[in-house]
Design a protein around this nucleic acid. Sequence first.
DNA 1: AACGAAACCTGCGCGC
DNA 2: TGCGCGCAGGTTTCGT
Length: 272
Amino acid sequence: MPELPEVEVVRTQLEKVVLNKQIIGFDVYYPDIFNGDINRLREVLIGNEVIRMERYGKYLVFIFKNDDVLISHLRMEGKYLVRRIEDEKHLSRHDHLVFKFDDGMELWYHDTRKFGRMDLRKIDDYLLTKPLNALGNEPKNMQEGELYRKIYKKNVPIKVALLDQSNIAGLGNIYVDETLFLSNIHPERKANTITKEEADFITLNAVKVLDKALKLGGTTIRTFAAGDIHGRFQNELLVHTKANMPCPVCNTIIKKIIVGGRGTYFCEKCQK
DNA sequence: AACGAAACCTGCGCGC
DNA sequence: TGCGCGCAGGTTTCGT
């Protein structure tokens, strides 16, 4: 489901409801979401409090007092839902974890495809160990020439290189298509044919796309929603999902192909 | 080391 | 109506 803007929306929403409340219960219905011993996680959570919410690329991070850190990746369909105990909405088969707070609020981790994963770390090393140590910089934090140095030897399609989170963090299938369209670059161009100037232009356009998406609350194409927040960036998409429709720049019909196993939308006239 | 394919899961829409 | 297939905003693992 979510790429950087959507995860940032989730982070902002969670920050409003979970900070500085004691966790008094933790129910588990599908333990495989957690990488590790789920009973150890419960021991750490009970009595603990989230003091800060961070985000790195598509990773959501709960910073607890007691120096504990929970890293959460939503993958395709993960969601956090906030409920009051008195709501007595019953669990669905896709609700896997329930965090219960001392003010009666419950945070439900819901994930239709069960792809999401969580890791427990300590504050001293969570940035130095998997998975965050392998993450590249976000576009807005990249220096001139940085993306070029990451990809100039790679003999893979530029789209595949941009989806690789160790090269550049935060882009997914939607925003890569949009970024490459703005950059006038064909998604199948080999990364090792991209010039330094083109790589810097890609980085610039990625910043623009992600910033605009965040301002609009992210993109809701299929199922993404952060609580009750539905993004509006889908109304601004230039090529992604636009197969057989006219290019907004030149009116050529947008094509859909498969690149790196992912549905890919582009304009063959604008993107070379 | 690098790259492509399969795997992890479930639901939905489509054609027959 | 029922069934099989393809597809889905992601990452890890396996095989070459």
